[in-house]
Every structure is written in C-alpha cells, then in structure tokens.
Design a protein around this nucleic acid. Structure first.
Lengths: 214, 214
DNA sequence: CTGCATCCGGGCCGATACTG
DNA sequence: CAGTATCGGCCCGGATGCAG
C-alpha cells in the first residue's frame, strides 16, 4: 500500500482507496455483501490476483470486512464512501456519460447508482410509477412509491413505461439529458408515456431546466 | 490514459482523474492558478516528468487549462471536483487524520481544505474571531466574519487565539476531535480562549455532540 | 466449481540528469 | 523556471495452476 506521505485528509484517503480498482470494488459492495466470484463478474477487466490483493488491503484498512459465510462486505466506515463516489459520479456523468458506450462493458446492476443520483431524495409530489429498463441482457425495474424511487434487477409485472435501447441513450432519457424525441432518435424504443419520467426527477431550485453541462 | 472500459459514471470519472497524483494536482489548483514550480513544491514526492504528464492529460481531458501567463488552472468543469474531493476528505479525516503525521510532509496551505470542511457554510450566530495557527514554518490565519469562516496564509495582526503545535494535534483541536485539555497534552500550546472554536463549528442537527468516528 | 496463488511480460511510476 | 530524457523497479494485467 503505497503512501503519498502527506499529512492531508485527501492524500491519506487516497492512500486507502486511491489505488486502481479499489473504488470500483467499493462500488460493487455498495449493493450489499458479495462473494469473490460475484465481485470478479461485476468488475470486467480486473485480474484475479489484483482483486484478491485489493480485498486484502481494504480489509486491512478497515474499509471491507469478511463475513463468516465467506462474503465480503463494507464496514460501517466503508459505507461512508457512498458519498464521495456519488459525488464523483455527479461530477463526471454529464460530460463522460454523454459519449456512447462504444466497446465499454455494461452491467444493468450498475444502474442502481445513477438512478439513486438522478432520482434521489423523497418528494411526496412524485407520482407512483413503474418503469422497466432493458439495456443489456438483464432487465431492471425502477419503482416510484410513496415519494421515493427505488430500483432492483428483474422484470416489472405491469410497467407503466418500458425503455429499451443502448446504455447511453437510455441513461440520457432517464437523466433528462435527452428529450423523448432525441432519445428515440438515439435508439431508445419507448412503450408508455415517457413524459412521466420528468415528474420523478427532483425539481431543482433556481432556473427551471438547469443546464446539465453536456 | 488507461481506461477501465466500463460504461459507468464512476469508472469513467476515474478514467479521467483516477490515476496517481491527479486528485492531488486538483487539490493544489483548487487554491487558484498555479505555476509548474508551485505545483511541484505543493506536491512533495511527485516526479517532475509525472507532473508534466498528468498536467498534459488533465488539460486534454478538459479538467485543467493553461493560461496565457503560463499558469495552470482548473476549468469550470474541473472546479466541480471540489465536491468529490471534500467528500473524500470528510470520509477519511476522522479515521486517518487522528494518526500522527509521523514522517509525512505537511504544508500549511493544505489547511484551507479542512478549515473549509470543518467550518463550512454560513451561520449568522457565529461570533467574529481571528485565530492564528502555527504548524509548519508558515503561519495561517483563520477568520470568522459575518457568519463566514475563511483562511489565508500569513500572520494575524491581533489574533484572539493562537494555536501552535504538531499538525495532528492542532487539527484535532480545530475539528473538535480533541478537547482543550487533550490538545494541550498532545503538544498544542494555546494562547487565548480555545472554547471559542466550538462556536465556529456548525451545530449538527440531531443528537448534540455527535461522535466523529475516531 | 469457487477462491485464490504463482508466474511472467509490459507499462507505469519514481528518481536523477539534462536542456531551452 | 519549466519542463524533457533516461533508466531501474514495481505494479498492473492476463494466463495458468492448485487447493478446499
């Protein structure tokens, strides 16, 4: 575990989770305890030895713990990394997610994070809604109930809205970066009233329809 | 610029600023435009070629721009990294900053970030106060005026409070992790009423005096 | 079959020397 | 002052092997 050797919270934080793959391991574990193989599948491109090493280091640092059933899980402290990770995603998404996925890998489980970022918080005025998203092989369901938006893997029983298409276009539609017309032109096939999505997003204070930067 | 090859905002964000030293270069530039030599001095341990390479990459990615006077500065987008960086510092600080500095380098300019994190926001009830902090060779001044707390390098003309000592102890006193007695026992010499510091910190909602975790 | 450890080639990192 | 050039070593990435 190489250190920057600086007495600074940022530098010392990076000493703990700044090495390659560490943040992405944490991303996977934010969804709950995972086995080694599940982590490996959720992290396309990682070498097995490197994953083992990072897990050892993270356990040693107190970020990850190993449960008795052999699963890895975030410690209480490790859970706190959700904030910095989501802050990074909020920063990067408007610029880097607008570019098409190209050859990049995509797993539908990763959608829970942008969904949490885009539809975060509680707003009683949000309508109840069930959306099914079909991007990769695995479908995802987004549900708005009681002012809160959640997501889970799997089909919806009777969705109000179904979005299917390439990752960047579907995500653009969810985030509101792409309007309905633009999303359709980017390859999203829509069944249902996609305008309902806008009512799930929190209404920002300030100018209506603030530019997202991308 | 090695990529994770994943269509995910976190992974793609790390593609941009996830390599070694990139975040710390941003940390330096958060204080304003800097020359190459200033960056090198603010980043003890960095190799000159690596600094040059990172700057090139960050410029290419649109995070940093090069001004006509030869200085490097964050772009509008790059400024947005303050949030993720401070979120990381908030996460790491309670655990990793409690450990003594040991052989780690320290620069008093770095104090502006913890000061911003600890005394952030505006609170009209905050008293006016001038604190001088002496840790390394360079003194720093923290000023509370009009409900806002700012910091700058240099001596204070007539400080209400002066804290001098090792970095971890002084920072512990500022953050409130160490009480006055504990700070003094850890090597902080105090002139003035250190209890005033507590009135600069925002009062958290919820249980009074929430545990900081370290 | 899962959960790693070992081995190995290439590339990145880190330190020093050198140049406009 | 602001980088470039060079080189050793370590880390990363991929394939393979092995133990429970």
């Amino acid at each position: 575990m190489k250190s920057y050797g600086q007495y600074c919270a940022i530098a010392r934080g990076l000493d703990v989770v700044g090495e390659r793959w560490s943040f992405l391991i944490v991303r996977e574990l934010l969804g709950g305890p995972r086995r080694y193989g599940e982590l490996a599948r959720g992290l396309p491109g990682v070498a097995t030895n490197l994953l083992a090493r990072r897990l050892r280091d993270l356990v040693g640092a107190g970020v990850v713990e190993r449960r008795k059933n052999g699963r890895y899980a975030l410690t209480r402290w490790g859970e706190g990394l959700r904030e910095p990770l989501y802050a990074l995603a909020r920063w990067s998404a408007p610029v880097v997610m607008a570019k098409p996925a190209g050859g990049d890998a995509f797993r539908s489980e990763w959608l829970v994070h942008p969904v949490a970022v885009i539809f975060g918080g509680v707003d009683e005025r949000r309508p109840a809604l069930t959306v099914e998203v079909q991007i990769g092989d695995e479908p995802m369901t987004i549900e708005s109930r009681g002012g809160r938006v959640t997501s889970r893997p799997g089909h919806a029983s009777s969705p109000d809205l179904v979005l299917a298409g390439p990752p960047d276009a579907v995500l653009g539609a969810l985030a509101g970066r792409l309007g309905i017309r633009a999303a359709a032109m980017s390859g999203v096939s829509i069944s249902g009233d996609a305008r309902l999505l806008a009512r799930l997003r929190p209404s920002l204070p300030g100018p209506p329809r603030a530019p997202t930067g991308g």
